[in-house]
Design a protein around this nucleic acid. Sequence first.
DNA 1: CTTGAATATGAGCAACTACTCACGTTACAT
DNA 2: ATGTAACGTGAGTAGTTGCTCATATTCAAG
Lengths: 214, 214
Amino acid sequence: MPESNSRRVPKQARSQERYEVILDRAAKLFLEKGFSGTTTNEIARRADVSIGSLYQYFGNKSAIVEALTGRYVVSLKEVTEDLITMDTGGLPTSAAVDRLVDPIIMFHLNYPEFRSLWLGAEISPELRSAMRAMDEEVLAHVQEVLEDRVPGISPDRARMVVTVLGLSVKSLLGLIGRSSSAAFKAEAAIETKHMLTAYIDELAREQKRLAAQE
Amino acid sequence: MPESNSRRVPKQARSQERYEVILDRAAKLFLEKGFSGTTTNEIARRADVSIGSLYQYFGNKSAIVEALTGRYVVSLKEVTEDLITMDTGGLPTSAAVDRLVDPIIMFHLNYPEFRSLWLGAEISPELRSAMRAMDEEVLAHVQEVLEDRVPGISPDRARMVVTVLGLSVKSLLGLIGRSSSAAFKAEAAIETKHMLTAYIDELAREQKRLAAQE
DNA sequence: CTTGAATATGAGCAACTACTCACGTTACAT
DNA sequence: ATGTAACGTGAGTAGTTGCTCATATTCAAG
């Protein structure tokens, strides 16, 4: 996946493998030690590649991050697209929560290295704003869903609720990423979704009570 | 607050001020750019101090982080002590949640720079494990509280629930730290606590239903 | 087998980083 | 006023970092 700062685009099979290996190791190192805590020489060493080779594929250090992004951005766009066009109208809350949260969890399970970009405090502003934009799309849709399921809720309140919901999912992803046990990941996901469901249902009851009072 | 790697302990009033200014600016920079992304020369420049002076107080770069810790660790220990000895027995869930969460929020509002240590991926292992230990104490106590409020819940399940609850609070603190509007912070806190309350109450109802079935 | 393009290498360079030290300045006790 | 301990300085040093380039090896087509 050639980026703006890439050098030679790998043409032979072996070099394409190396390209991928470099990205794998770089992602791990960035996750462990952060961007500026990782040296290009160490990336090369861990990938069993000379620095010279590394710089044949990546024009500079940040080009590695950019390429890393390219790896996942397509898949992430797909997930986003799916989510914002999803209709959860007739479903009970817990099923709706499953439908909206599971794809996000799946994405992070499939691409665990993505965490290094996602959590990293040192990614480029453009990348950060691109991911924010996708986040925002999803949150806006979830807000619609919420306003639908909790009739009478004010848009401001709904916005705040969605922010909190989104944050909870985000922290779940962090927990899942750090853990190594598949069973733990599954339980944590169930428990978190349980919480989201309980919250949304409680909000619906609350609004119903308010409506009945008038 | 002299640490192991400190040099001269500041004795005159002016130099004590400088010492504090260095810590203030360093905390900001660590938060913005991470530990390894921040240079000691930049810290000195931002604190209007020569690097020479900086190294009179701090033996090396990580001594700055250690001193930064010293600033907050006393206060944090107090909060932890309060939390784990707190009795929320007769209170309704929402009041109990308030009592347990508010002190944590308060701490982070009072010491916003603490976030740079708390979120930083690059703090020392000792400091990280010390903070983990305090976390663990609080979580263990919250688990007891939960098992008390949700009779019949299994310890394993309770542990998982507490993990999720703790994570939600943690992400709330992140949100609060990033925001600048006091009103937003307050609303976010209320909404998050609302979610925690709804969740705990739902768990209690669930266990009651299960108990009635037998 | 030959040839040229692609790929690989790592010593080395310029820039930067953490940190030192010799020297100058300020504050305070006597 | 003087001595001295505390404080302050910033050019300089040794080591590290991102990155280059001259040279060597591998590949595939004719």
